[in-house]
């Protein structure tokens, strides 16, 4: 079971060495094209991509596409997290429910996301619902499995502590089991966010013609590789930024949950 402790942390110190490597890679790419070592008709130089970015930013296309993709990612991810945590809590606290539903889950879980696209298209047409269906179904599982596993992994003693203080079942779940399982749940929530970005772009490429995914495809078909690369890189940056944002939010809102595993035990 994919349960491990949440250990992501943000550092505000810029990684100079890492940035230097990136700059060198860009420079090598640029020079290889200028000198003619890379000779492909549709491989643009970084300088052309940067010019393209300026063009797209000025026209507002970049913003529109990014906002659309962001919207689907957030909506889909929020639904996946809400459903995953709810079902995970139910399954994690009821052996009976697990016995009845784990088989179904194990069949559904490995289904490839792309297989849902035609189904979603038939059901919802070219709409954000199609995107959401493609995003939610696969990104639900990491949250659900980690919530269930996190809950089941809580030491039995903690439940007995709740009982000896005569807390209600709800209070034991809310005050004891849920916080104890939070690091595991957060792992699922993070995996699910990364998945949601990938799935949104995928759904836009082959399903709903909007957002960054569709923009990549349409620039390719318009034979504008410079603009296509702009969208590809924006997708990469979006994933990076969203993950960093989540890590930041978690370390602010659950300081103890992450602090717990930071310090040495003595």
């Amino acid at each position: 079971m994919a349960v491990r402790q949440f250990s992501g942390r943000l550092s505000w110190r810029p990684n100079i060495a890492g940035l230097v490597t990136m700059a060198i890679c860009g420079l090598v790419w640029e020079m290889a094209i200028q000198v003619g070592v890379f000779d492909y008709q549709y491989l643009p130089a970084p300088s052309a991509i940067i010019r393209g970015a300026g063009e797209l930013a000025a026209s507002g296309e970049l913003i529109t596409a990014t906002l659309h993709t962001l919207e689907s990612v957030f909506l889909g991810w929020a639904i996946a997290v809400a459903a995953g945590v709810s079902f995970g809590l139910l399954l994690g606290s009821s052996p009976l429910l697990r016995r009845y539903s784990l088989a179904t889950i194990e069949v559904l879980r490995p289904m490839p996301a792309i297989a849902f696209v035609p189904v979603a298209l038939l059901l919802f047409g070219f709409s954000i619902q199609t995107e959401l269906m493609v995003i939610v179904l696969p990104s639900l599982w990491p949250v659900l499995i980690n919530t269930m596993g996190g809950l089941m992994g809580v030491h039995a003693r903690l439940g007995e502590v709740g009982r000896t203080f005569r807390l209600s079942r709800a209070a034991i779940l809310y005050k004891v089991f849920l916080p104890a399982a939070t690091p595991a749940i957060m792992v699922g929530v993070r995996i699910s966010l990364t998945l949601a970005v990938v799935l949104a772009v995928l759904a836009e490429m082959v399903g709903n013609p909007e957002g960054l995914g569709y923009a990549v495809v349409s620039q390719q078909q318009a034979l504008r590789p410079d603009l296509m690369f702009v969208y590809v890189m924006v997708i990469g940056l979006l994933g990076l930024a969203l993950n960093a944002l989540l890590v930041g939010v978690v370390s602010v809102s659950f300081p103890a949950a992450s602090a717990e595993f930071k310090g040495p035990r003595w």
């Binding site: 030491h155 903690l158 007995e160 000896t164 203080f165 005569r166 104890a180 939070t182 103890a256």
Partner: peptide
């Protein structure tokens, strides 16, 4: 668990809420 009766467990590291 009766009212007014509390158990103190041997394994404090599991019995305390680490967060």
């Amino acid at each position: 668990p009766p009212e007014g009766v509390v158990i103190v467990f041997q394994d404090y590291s599991h019995a305390l809420l680490q967060w």
